[in-house]
Amino acid sequence: MEEERGTTERVLTLLGLLQQRPVWTGPELAERLGVTPRTVRRDVERLRAIGYPVQASQGTGGGYQLGPGQDMPPLLLDDEEAIATAVSLLAGAGDGDAALRALTKLDRVLPTRLRHEVRALSGSVVSFDGGRTPVDPEMLMTLARACRDEVEVGFSYLAGSSGQRRVEPYRLVASDRRWYLLAYDLDRDDWRTFRVDRMNEVTARSWRFRPRAAPDAASYVQESVASRVYAHQARFLVHAPAETVRAQIPASAAVVRARGSRCEVVSGAADLDFVLMHVVLLGHSFEVIEPAELRKRCRVLAERLSAAGGPGP
């Protein structure tokens, strides 16, 4: 029993080492574990037997490394449990990014033989409530895998400059209403935000890419949705705490940044009067930072409102 416990502890230590860096040589592992290279080979076989994909390569730069699934233990579910779990997560993928994150992790270890069953059964699950714009869970999974595996994605896009797009996917971002993909657009040489419900024919390509220095995904998408997609953008200094104003404005409608005891509000619209009306209705004193024409518009509207109030008593 003592010998068995020692072997188990050593195999777990070996697993920990393999998770720490991409490649270990046999002699390096033997030295760290205090055993012979032959024992290392036996322990590697033990890991393979319980489901860890330990790969071995020869020659310069070769050694032992974990393949896909390296960050998770083996799937301790039978086939029926695995299918039920995956279908539940697929059904929930349209309602929260936590479900998609869990499904992406499960995808690493879900046996290939079960995937067609999951795809078939997921079509039998629907939701009757409103909430987020519905998207195909399989499309979300394709995009999530591509973000995880750092491979290019191609798709047709049905908005703005419609047509075929080729991108390096970075993150999927969930808003209160929609799913968005933050990706580097290879044809336009810039970061772009794409609504997933406007994407069709999504395919992951075989070309891997080296990740670029990327903006903060959530902040970038929020600013894109709240202001950059509109013809006009406006910035206000609102005389109220950021927490108070965030509670009044949906995240998809404006970006709110703390400025001491006050806050800056950035929003956009097809008509600047529309943005101005919403800031007025917040009920706080405010100043227009930009654009200059909006300050002029405030004076015009102030005179009109004053006139509408009629002469004083």
Rank of each mutant, 00 (worst) to 15 (best):
D149M: 04
E138I: 10
F236C: 08
A183H: 01
P137V: 04
A159D: 06
R246N: 09
V255R: 15
L172H: 06
Y170A: 15
A159M: 04
H232W: 14
Q222R: 13
V238K: 00
Q248E: 12
V221G: 05
D136L: 03
N200Q: 12
A251F: 00
P134E: 09
V238D: 03
V256R: 01
L237W: 01
R166H: 13
R262S: 04
A217G: 09
A247N: 10
A144G: 13
D149I: 07
D189T: 07
L186N: 03
R177N: 11
T244S: 07
R166Q: 14
S206P: 00
A217L: 01
L237S: 08
M139R: 12
T193Q: 05
R171W: 06
S162I: 03
E168Y: 05
E138W: 14
V202N: 08
R178C: 15
P241L: 04
R198L: 14
G154L: 10
A204Q: 12
V225R: 10
V202Q: 09
E168A: 10
V135D: 14
V221I: 13
A204P: 06
V196D: 02
L172S: 11
Y170Q: 08
R235M: 10
R228S: 05
D190T: 15
E223S: 09
D176T: 12
H239Y: 15
A218Q: 07
D189A: 09
V245I: 06
P215V: 08
E243S: 11
A146S: 13
R145N: 12
V255Y: 06
T244N: 02
L158V: 14
D185I: 05
R188T: 10
R177Q: 14
M199Q: 12
S162E: 15
V196Q: 03
Y180T: 12
L140H: 00
F209G: 11
T193K: 02
V255D: 07
S161G: 15
L140A: 03
V153A: 00
D187C: 03
Q233C: 04
A234L: 12
A159Y: 02
A234N: 09
L237R: 08
P211N: 07
A234W: 15
A258T: 02
S227G: 07
E152K: 04
A214D: 01
D190Q: 11
A214Y: 00
R171G: 11
S156C: 09
L182T: 09
R177P: 10
W207E: 06
N200I: 13
Y230G: 11
V153Q: 00
G260P: 13
R228P: 01
D216M: 02
A242C: 14
A242L: 09
P137E: 15
